[in-house]
Nucleic acid binder design. Sequence first.
DNA 1: ATCAAATCGTACCATATAGTATGAAATTGG
DNA 2: CCAATTTCATACTATATGGTACGATTTGAT
Lengths: 214, 214
Amino acid sequence: MTEPVPLLSRREARRRDRRKAILEVASRSFLENGYAATTMSGIAATLGGSKGTLWRYFPSKEALFAACLDDATTAYREGLAEILDPRGDLAQTLRRLGLKLLEKVTAPDSVALYRLVISEAGRFPEMGAIFYEHVPRNTRLLITRFLERAMESGLLRRGDPDTAARTYMMLMLSGCHQLLLLGQITRATPHQIEADVTFGLDCFLRAYAPDAPG
Amino acid sequence: MTEPVPLLSRREARRRDRRKAILEVASRSFLENGYAATTMSGIAATLGGSKGTLWRYFPSKEALFAACLDDATTAYREGLAEILDPRGDLAQTLRRLGLKLLEKVTAPDSVALYRLVISEAGRFPEMGAIFYEHVPRNTRLLITRFLERAMESGLLRRGDPDTAARTYMMLMLSGCHQLLLLGQITRATPHQIEADVTFGLDCFLRAYAPDAPG
DNA sequence: ATCAAATCGTACCATATAGTATGAAATTGG
DNA sequence: CCAATTTCATACTATATGGTACGATTTGAT
C-alpha cells in the first residue's frame, strides 16, 4: 500500500533529537535544583529555543518531570545482571555485586534522584511507583533469584529469598548512603564504599549462614 | 534592685503562646505541603493574625522552617531511654525497643518529616544536620551504649557497638518504612510493624550471636 | 490614667512563574 | 518550487509569593 517508509524521516529524527535534548537539560535542572526550583522558562532558555517549542513537546511541567523520571530510571538498570553468575565463589560474587551497587547508588546523580523522588512521592504517588518499579524492585528481583539458587545449593540457610535480598541491600546502604541522603557528606570515597560492603557482607553472611548440622 | 520578677510576665507568656501557635500551624503546613508549597500568607491567614505579626516572630520563611524543624526533632527523642533497661532478657528488650522505634518512625508525621528533611537537605545542609543530630544520631547513641554493655557481658559477640546499633536500626527499617517513603503505602499496620521487628531482630541476633567457643 | 509595645487589617511592591498568543523565519516533504 | 509543519523571538496574561508600610486599635506595665 504505502511506500517503504524510511525508518526515520528527517522530521522524525529531528524530533527525537530535540526531545532527547530537552530531557537532558530538564533532568539536569530537576536533579540539581529540585522540582519547584526548576522553571520551564529556564529550561527553554538554556535550550536556546522558544517556550512555544518546549510546550509543543511536553504539555506541562508535570508531564516533563514524569518523562525525565522515566528516562533516568530506565537508564539505571544496567551492569548488574552479568555480575550475578551463579558459578564461582558466593562471597566473592556478593562482594562484587555490593561494590557495583554501592558505587551506583552513591553517585551524586543517584542521590539527587532519590531525594527528588522521595520529596515528590507525596504529591505524585505515580512518580514514586515509577521509581520503585524501575529501581529498587527491579534490582531486588535479580538478587532474589540469585540468592534463591544459593539457598537451594545449601550455601545459605533457607528463608524467604526476597526478604534476604532486601536485607542484603539494606545492609549495604546503612553507611555512607545515609549520610549522603541527609547531606552530611557530599561524596562517598572508594574507601568508604569498600568498608560498607565489607561490613554489610560480613553481617549478611553471618545472618544467613547455613544452619549448623544437627 | 528590681522587684522580684514573676517567672513569666503576662507579655512573655503571651509571646510564648503565640510563638507556639505559629510553630504548630507552620509545622502542619510544612509537613503536609512541603517547603515550597507552604506560603507565609497562608500561615498568617490560618493563624488569624496579620502578616506583620508573623514577621515579627520569624524574620523569614527560612528561619521559620528552621524553628519548626528544631521543634519537631526535639519532641522526637522521648520514651526510648527507659526501655533500654540493661537488666532483663536481651532479646525481649531489643524487641520492645524495635516496636517502639518502628511505631514512631512509621507514623505519618515522621514520614512527612523525613521526606521534608531529605528533600531540603541539599539546599539547606544545616537543616540536614539539625535533623541528623537530633534524631538518628541521638537514638543511635542510646542503642550503642546498650549494645556495648551487652557485648561486655558476652550476650553478643564483640564488634564496633556503634556499627552494631546502626545495623540494628537499619534492619528494622528495611520493610514498610521503605514503602512509606516512596509512597507505595500510606499507613503501616501493627501487623506489618511486628513482622518487620521480628524479622529484623532475628537477623540481628544471628549476625551478632556470640562466637561459638573453641 | 497614661504611655509604649504589640497586633491588626489591609493595601502595596517587586518579582517570578506556568502557560498562551502571534507573526515571521526556517525546515521539510513532494 | 510550493505548501505544510515546525521553530523562533517576544510580548503578554493571570496568578502567586515573600516581604514591607502604615495608620488604627488593643493590650500590658507602671
